[in-house]
Write a protein that binds this DNA or RNA. Structure first.
Lengths: 192, 192
DNA sequence: GCAGACTCTTGATCTATATCAAGTTTTTAC
DNA sequence: GTAAAAACTTGATATAGATCAAGAGTCTGC
């Protein structure tokens, strides 16, 4: 499955053959079964992780025991906990696989070294971060100004295909509503 | 007021005198009166902006005409619209001054050039972006899992000093609640 | 292929927060 | 310094969405 990542790199940046090979030499392939954890609350996250296949979710559990889905990540996206990584502190999140998945991991040490040695790689990484930040801003925006129905419609417009892969309960949690509410919204919008 | 930015740079990174001077040579000083816009909806944002004095707010207006405060930024922080900047598209946001303010602006062209020419500067900029992303994630987290009261308490704990500078109406909007609700929460929590 | 466990749906009821309205206090502008 | 405009408070009422509960579908493991 490393080809998926290689293709992604070709798409997003321009590397010489030797740079590309060099990057590959640090890659760690990781397979996850459905339900398997990539990261558990309390662990310190130490990688940069790219998904070549499957679908993962990042969520936290509050004091009342309710789960809150922070994000979904599918093939050709990155995942992990930047806060835990940056400050080397125990994570407040869990990341697990919604489907059988495959990832390409780099230890953060190696990843930073690659960023320093290969400017094109560094630029790509920064561009991704910028886009992630913009996406986060837009999500905040949506959570402040949208009704439950608008949130759902915005979600399926923005991430078509997700709705069919991910259980509704998790989507509801991601959107900040109960599964019952989402079920009713889906019923209503189906009518129209 | 440029000294404030200079001090910030010294704090966050290590530059030679000539690098520091070089950066300064591209700086544009901008003063804003209270209520004055830095950016209006529909404009294309073209700068990287650092606040040396004062307080600004970024907000959007929805179809019903309600304002939604996206963020506050004070001295020693950055502001702007990354989405408009990155894609050179009309902004959905307004940014205006809550207090008389002063900023250091760089055109994005110059800013990128500085990033390319001065690695230490580039690293600093990336670190800021990382932290901004982490803050955005935490805010999403809060908006999903906190009650109105918890959101307010979290806000004043995280940004002490903001509450006294910023009108409650705007804080309420930032937290995703009505001014009336915030007023009642403040009354309750004052009692305790 | 079946039992148990999830997941989704639907209905009844409840509740946190919104909305509307009016009064009070603070700020702004001349 | 004063009048008008904003900002904040408080009360009464409304409502979107939560919670509780029970039944119907679907998946999963042996």
């Amino acid at each position: 499955m490393y080809e998926v990542f290689q293709k992604y790199l070709e798409d997003k940046t321009t590397l010489t053959q030797s740079e590309s090979d060099y990057i590959q030499s640090f890659a760690i392939i990781k397979k996850l079964r459905k339900r398997q954890y990539l990261l558990q609350e309390g662990d310190i996250w130490k990688y940069d992780a790219f998904i070549t296949k499957g679908c993962l979710r990042t969520y936290s559990v509050d004091e009342k025991g309710s789960e809150h889905v922070n994000s979904f990540s599918i093939e050709n996206w990155w995942t992990g906990d930047r806060e835990s990584l940056m400050f080397q502190q125990p994570s407040r999140f869990n990341i697990d696989a919604i489907e059988d998945s495959e990832l390409v991991l780099f230890t953060h040490e190696n990843f930073e070294m690659l960023c320093n040695e290969i400017p094109a790689f560094n630029n790509m990484v920064n561009a991704i971060l910028q886009k992630s930040f913009i996406a986060a801003q837009n999500r905040i925006q949506a959570s402040l100004s949208f009704t439950a129905e608008e949130k759902y419609l915005n979600f399926i417009a923005k991430y078509p295909g997700f709705a069919s892969r991910i259980p509704q309960t998790m989507i509801a949690s991601y959107l900040g509503m109960t599964p019952e509410t989402l079920s009713r919204i889906r019923k209503q919008t189906a009518k129209k």
